[in-house]
Design a protein around this nucleic acid. Structure first.
Length: 216
DNA sequence: ACCCAGGGTCATA
DNA sequence: TATGACCATGGG
């Protein structure tokens, strides 16, 4: 039976602390979570840079901007029509709940339900916001988590989001810092290791490359 | 030219 | 419930 903590330790030994999420403010973090959906972080940085340059990286300003202007600014992050609409729906919610101070007073379960009710925000985006923006100990699952842990034999490749999340949360103590670092390390492993050439040399997980086509 | 990226929604069977 | 189409840009 493979345990989650030894895997974490191997990743941490190799890559060190990640200090996620890269953002100046919680609101910027949550905007980044929407923008990074199925798109490389490099493109997200361009979009965020555009939003900052236009001085609308704030909830009120984002609502005042037109759909067309917002879409143009975030164009590098792809799916810009969908994401522009999602950004404005999220900004509406953020203001209605009393911004960061208001969100802080809500329970994690209530916050999660409310975030998932926003069209364009699914489980991974909501949990990323909770973990890194609102500092709640929720374990974030992504495509890499599925590949790694299915290839390690922990679960089927088609395991549901909630089930794999429960697998982690049941055996790890719910410590914010641990959950934040663990997810970041999984992403770092995909970036730094699996894209290295030659691929998969000295893989700390001994499970080959975790990109979609290059597995075991 | 192809594959992929720090997903999510909606229609269909 | 469970696949498939669709959204769209930029890097390797």
């Amino acid at each position: 039976m493979i345990k989650a903590l030894p895997i974490y330790q191997q990743l941490y030994d190799r890559y060190g602390p990640q200090q996620w999420w890269p953002a100046d403010t919680p609101f910027e973090m949550m905007i980044g979570a929407i923008l990074t959906q199925n798109c490389s972080w490099l493109n997200v940085e361009k979009a965020i840079s555009n939003l900052k340059a236009a001085d609308i990286l704030a909830a009120e300003e984002m609502l005042n901007a037109s759909h067309e202007q917002l879409g143009e600014l975030i164009r590098p992050a792809g799916f810009f029509n969908q994401k522009a609409a999602t950004l404005q729906r999220f900004s509406r919610f953020y203001i209605d709940q009393g911004q960061l101070e208001g969100l802080k007073t809500e329970t994690t379960a209530a916050l999660r339900e409310e975030l998932l009710a926003i069209t364009g925000i699914g489980p991974e985006t909501a949990d990323s916001m909770l973990l890194y923006g609102l500092e709640r100990p929720i374990f974030v699952i992504d495509a890499y988590s599925r590949r790694i842990f299915s290839r390690l034999g922990v679960a089927e490749a088609t395991i549901k989001y909630h089930e794999l999340q429960q697998w982690f949360q049941q055996q790890l103590t719910a410590e914010l810092h641990l959950f934040q670092e663990y997810h970041a390390l999984i992403v770092q492993h995909a970036k730094a290791h699996c894209r290295a050439k030659p691929r998969c040399e000295g893989c700390p997980l001994q499970t080959s490359c975790i990109t979609a086509q290059q597995g075991i």
